[in-house]
Design a protein around this nucleic acid. Structure first.
Length: 116
DNA sequence: CTGATGACGGTGC
DNA sequence: GGCACCGCCATCA
């Protein structure tokens, strides 16, 4: 199982209507750097079953490349799930932030070898 | 094997 | 709040 696959696996645990940050995903899978998460998502191709739209940066903002179409799509998908954005495109992590996985979940999937 | 390529985060100014 | 660094390393050509 590659690091990318672990990252996608964790992202699929994010519930509907919640969002997680890159750093949060990184800590869960044990990636030394949050960049790995971003890189994994960048390598993701459209048509994947991974809810990539629920992953945003630590400031609660959508952080995509210079692709406005995909950028708007991400916000659209999240708003369809009930996540709201302010006029600056920021979402309230206190309200919509994901709590993360449980210790039991990590143990169940043998991810304790990597961190936590 | 080597080098290029990246959806970030924290810190300091 | 914004900006410039720096750390970070799996994947691919």
């Amino acid at each position: 199982m590659t690091l990318y696959e672990r990252i996608y696996f964790v992202i699929r645990q994010i519930p509907h209507g919640k969002v997680a940050t890159y750093g949060q995903i990184a800590r869960i899978v044990g990636a030394c750097s949050p960049r790995m998460v971003g890189y994994a998502l960048a390598a993701l191709q459209s048509g994947s079953d991974t809810p990539w739209q629920r992953v945003i940066n630590s400031q609660g903002k959508i952080s995509l490349r210079i692709d406005e179409i995909e950028n708007n799509l991400q916000q659209l998908l999240l708003e369809a799930e009930g996540v709201t954005f302010d006029e600056k495109g920021k979402t309230d992590l206190q309200q919509f932030g994901w709590e993360g996985v449980t210790w039991e979940w990590l143990n169940k999937h043998n991810m304790l070898n990597y961190e936590n």
